[in-house]
């Protein structure tokens, strides 16, 4: 079902390109249907606010999104910080706006697992949602490596289980012993049995959340116009996007992410 909708949408999008609309790419971290439902009102608002023709483009997978992004196919894109760092590097995308809240990664274990300290984590089975999951996977790996010299990538057992929920469930059901996630998804987990059996044993430092970046070829006045519209977005429209309030930012905010990419070479690929 989802696939069918997706096909429909991508055909629609490719048609509208010829009319020189602006392509708004969104990283497909959730199912495409949910993303369309969440983002369509937002892009509709932008169209209205800017008078520009804006087309929402949601790829089949994150890999597909990365490919398009790194080829500079999007005029505007919403992506995670690591994508941005690479996209900036490759095509000169510039971050202009982001949600005011920061990203914090967490590590969860079963309450009865007996794991209390970081030192207990060695030799355990880790679960992460996906390799490119910025907070849940990348920040956690980065800080464990930097702060505790636990090199998961090289020395530990880990498995990507596709979603934050799966990470929590997997830990709760014993598929893994330590799971990487973020506070919001953990709090939002509606599986009480799972939730109550887990405990957060580590939080990362806060990192800037997902930016909305512009293609460098997009005219400045258009960028300006859109940025203004973004900043004026009513908060009610943002709830569906798990955002609180959009704020204006600059590229420098993502320098910490840039150094993280260098250390975690696999992360952006």
């Amino acid at each position: 079902m989802h696939f069918l909708l997706f096909f429909f949408l991508s055909t629609f999008v490719s048609f509208t390109l010829s009319a020189q609309p602006l392509i708004f790419g969104v990283v497909p971290q959730q199912s495409p249907l949910e993303l369309v439902k969440a983002w369509k009102p937002f892009t509709d608002y932008l169209e209205k606010a800017t008078g520009e023709k804006i087309v929402l483009k949601i790829e089949r997978s994150i890999g597909e999104f990365e490919k398009n992004l790194y080829q500079g196919n999007y005029d505007i894109a919403y992506m995670n910080p690591s994508h941005y760092v690479i996209a900036h590097q490759k095509k000169g995308y510039v971050a202009k706006v982001r949600d005011q809240k920061n990203l914090v990664g967490i590590l969860v274990v079963r309450k009865d697992s007996g794991i209390a300290n970081i030192s207990d984590m060695k030799g355990k089975q880790f679960l992460f949602p996906a390799s490119g999951a910025f907070a849940a996977t990348m920040i956690n790996k980065y800080e464990l490596l930097i702060d505790h010299s636990i090199n998961i990538e090289s020395n530990e057992k880990f498995r990507y289980v596709n979603s934050h929920d799966s990470v929590y469930k997997g830990v709760a059901r014993g598929l893994g012993e330590i799971g990487g996630g973020i506070e919001r998804t953990f709090n939002d987990l509606n599986d009480e049995e799972t939730k109550s059996s887990l405990i957060i044993i580590r939080r990362t430092k806060p990192y800037p959340s997902h930016p909305i970046a512009f293609h460098p070829m997009l005219p400045q006045e258009t960028q300006q116009k859109i940025t203004q519209a973004l900043l004026n977005t009513p908060d009610s429209l943002l709830i569906a996007l798990n955002m609180k309030h959009l704020i204006e930012i600059n590229h420098a905010e993502y320098s910490s992410v840039q150094s993280m990419i260098k250390i975690l070479p696999k992360a952006g690929k």
Binding site: V161, S163, S166, G170
Partner: peptide, 12 residues
């Protein structure tokens, strides 16, 4: 598919 990757969320 979810089983292979231990995608327990989808599985649930």
């Amino acid at each position: 598919t979810p089983m292979v990757v231990y995608d327990l969320g989808t599985l649930d």
